[in-house]
Design a protein around this nucleic acid. Structure first.
Length: 274
DNA sequence: CGCATTTCCTGGTAGC
DNA sequence: TGCTACCAGGAAATGC
């Protein structure tokens, strides 16, 4: 999403939305308020986690989530078009939102009013910000008993970690995805924090990860796919130790991990026990 | 509130 | 060839 944001920023900043045209987009919250976009100028292009946030000149905010299969472009897509925005300006004066599987969102809300977007409202710090400190991560992990991978996916401890990056970060940090969040050893919190940052930083440098549908605004595939160590590599040797990468379902999500490098932590024994 | 489960949706593919 | 079954998953809705 950061890759997309960087492409949209120079294009859309300062443009006025002349009209919004919904195409085969069902009624409901996913496209709520879009009619209000007309006549408003896009003042900036920001991002929180996987949400794009574009403040508008009359106090609203355009919120976009690509879901699994959403693609933004300046050319009409070959099908599954959901939204067309007509923009001021001479060149590139239409934006198209394609979404094959309809998991995406493209809505206008009063700026900062995330009643329709509870995940956004309760989202953790940006992973590359100072706010995402070891102490903060340690604090939030202590609040949950769910598997650490599932907790990362909730967006609450940190913003923007999806299934692929969760697997990669846990592999790099040497943490079993099933470990209850509050049982992550204190010594592993900094490695996890650093791994999340590294994976995201490197992926941004490669313009993201394309499995199937993701494309940059320019229509390119992300280059991080062949840099993945665990995700999608079940049955292959672990790049670190050679053990065969395992596959499991954690929190209903496909999960890939090295059973040797990512061992469950030893349960802490109480002082004086035995 | 926390947490688990279910739902949404369609293209690709495995299996027959 | 054509059919069915299943899988992928981010976030919201639902259930407890």
């Amino acid at each position: 999403m950061e890759t997309v944001r960087r492409e949209l920023e120079p294009w859309l900043t300062g443009r006025t939305i002349l009209g919004a045209c919904l195409e085969d987009a069902p009624p409901g919250p996913k496209y709520a308020g879009l009619q209000r976009a007309a006549g408003q100028r896009i003042t900036s292009v920001g991002r929180r986690g996987k949400f794009l946030l574009m403040p508008l000149s009359r106090g609203d905010e355009l919120v976009v989530h690509l879901g699994m299969t959403g693609v933004v472009s300046d050319r009409p897509p070959p099908g599954h078009l959901r939204v067309r925005l007509d923009l001021s300006g001479e060149a590139r004066n239409a934006l198209y939102f394609r979404d094959i599987r309809r998991f995406g969102r493209f809505m206008v809300v009063p700026a900062g009013d995330y009643g329709l977007l509870p995940t956004l409202a309760s989202m953790g710090p940006e992973p590359l910000s100072d706010e995402f400190s070891v102490a903060a991560l340690k604090r939030t992990l202590a609040r949950s008993r769910t598997p650490v991978k599932t907790y990362l996916l909730s967006q609450r401890p940190v913003a923007g970690v999806g299934n692929i990056y969760a697997d990669e970060a846990l592999w790099r940090a040497g943490l079993d995805p099933q470990t209850p969040a509050d049982e992550v050893p204190a010594s592993r919190v900094k490695p996890l924090r650093d791994a999340i940052r590294c994976v995201l930083t490197e992926s941004i440098a490669a313009q993201g990860t394309t499995l199937n549908d993701y494309r940059t605004v320019a229509g390119k595939s992300g280059g991080f796919l062949d840099r993945l160590s665990a995700y999608g590599h079940a049955g292959e040797p672990c790049p670190r130790c050679g053990t065969i990468i395992a596959h499991a379902v954690v929190g209903a999500r496909s999960t890939h991990y090295c059973p040797a490098c990512q061992r469950p932590p030893r349960r802490r024994t109480r002082a004086g026990a035995r």
